[in-house]
Amino acid sequence: MKNLILVALIVGLNVASTLPAAAEKLSLNAISTYLNGLKTAQGAFTQINDDGTISTGTLYISRPGKMRFEYDPPEQALVVASANAVVIIDKKSNQPPETYPLNRTPLSLILARQVNLDRARMVMGHDYDGTATIVTAQDPDNAEYGTIQMSFTDAPVQLRQWIINDANGGQTTVILGAFETGVSLDSSLFDRSVALRNRDR
């Protein structure tokens, strides 16, 4: 399970959601503006792992810099990103939790204080598939940590999913469910010390 989550991070709308039929290709500036305006969000996610297995759970976002993945049973996993680090906790594992710098994950692009997709060497692809705008991006200062491919629909602009491709060729897809934005989130959700204390309960 630890490796499953680590792939989702380093390489994390319901699957059956119907996409708008009259979408248009979004500019990089429009997408940057949308992400910068996304302060808090909460909703379900479905994760398709590199080995084809599927996980589900609840995702919490508090920009800048904070994200929490709560995985549904039977998995007993939790991932918390805050204070420029990511802690991965698996209650079923005998190994201690692991911590990694947030900037080693492409998710740091979504959680950045200021998203600017026009930055040199950040965007590797900007396409439109008929229903969604697809942006493939990397951290230009840490390209070795992988890429993130984000899908956005229009009217209104919404992030629908992302695909993480890691440096080892692994791929993990996170599909966002019905998301509520602008919500009030308790700061303890992103407190790594609280998550670690709760691990052994």
Rank of each mutant, 00 (worst) to 15 (best):
K2T: 08
L4Q: 14
L4D: 14
I5W: 02
L6K: 13
I10G: 00
V11Q: 10
L13D: 08
L13R: 13
V15L: 13
V15F: 11
A16M: 04
S17V: 14
L19G: 05
L19Q: 07
P20M: 03
S27N: 01
A30F: 00
I31F: 03
I31Q: 01
S32I: 05
S32Q: 08
T33R: 08
N36V: 12
K39Q: 14
Q42G: 02
G43H: 10
A44H: 08
A44W: 00
T46S: 12
Q47W: 02
I48W: 00
I48V: 12
D50G: 01
D51A: 07
G52I: 02
T53D: 05
T56N: 12
I61E: 06
I61C: 06
S62G: 10
M67W: 00
M67F: 04
F69Q: 06
Y71E: 01
Y71C: 01
D72M: 03
P73I: 01
E75S: 05
E75P: 00
A77S: 08
L78R: 12
A81G: 12
S82G: 05
A83G: 04
N84V: 00
V87W: 00
S93N: 08
S93T: 08
N94F: 01
Q95A: 14
P96T: 03
P97H: 03
E98Y: 00
T99V: 11
T99Q: 09
T99A: 09
P101Y: 01
P101H: 04
T105Q: 07
T105Y: 02
S108P: 04
L111C: 13
V115M: 08
N116D: 15
D118N: 15
A120P: 12
A120S: 14
V123E: 04
V123M: 11
G125E: 12
G125N: 14
D127V: 03
D127L: 10
I134G: 05
T136A: 07
Q138G: 08
P140Q: 05
P140E: 04
E144D: 13
E144V: 14
T147M: 10
T147S: 09
I148R: 07
Q149D: 07
Q149V: 10
S151K: 10
A155N: 15
A155F: 09
A155P: 01
A155R: 15
P156D: 11
W162S: 02
W162M: 09
I164H: 06
N165R: 14
N165P: 02
D166I: 06
N168Y: 13
G169I: 06
G169M: 11
G169W: 12
G170Y: 03
T172R: 06
V174R: 02
L176P: 10
L176A: 11
A178V: 12
E180D: 15
T181M: 09
T181N: 11
S184K: 15
L185F: 09
D186S: 13
D186K: 14
S188G: 02
S188Y: 03
F190T: 05
D191F: 06
R192E: 08
L196D: 00
L196I: 06
R197G: 07
R197K: 12
N198Y: 02
R199C: 03
R199I: 00
R201S: 06
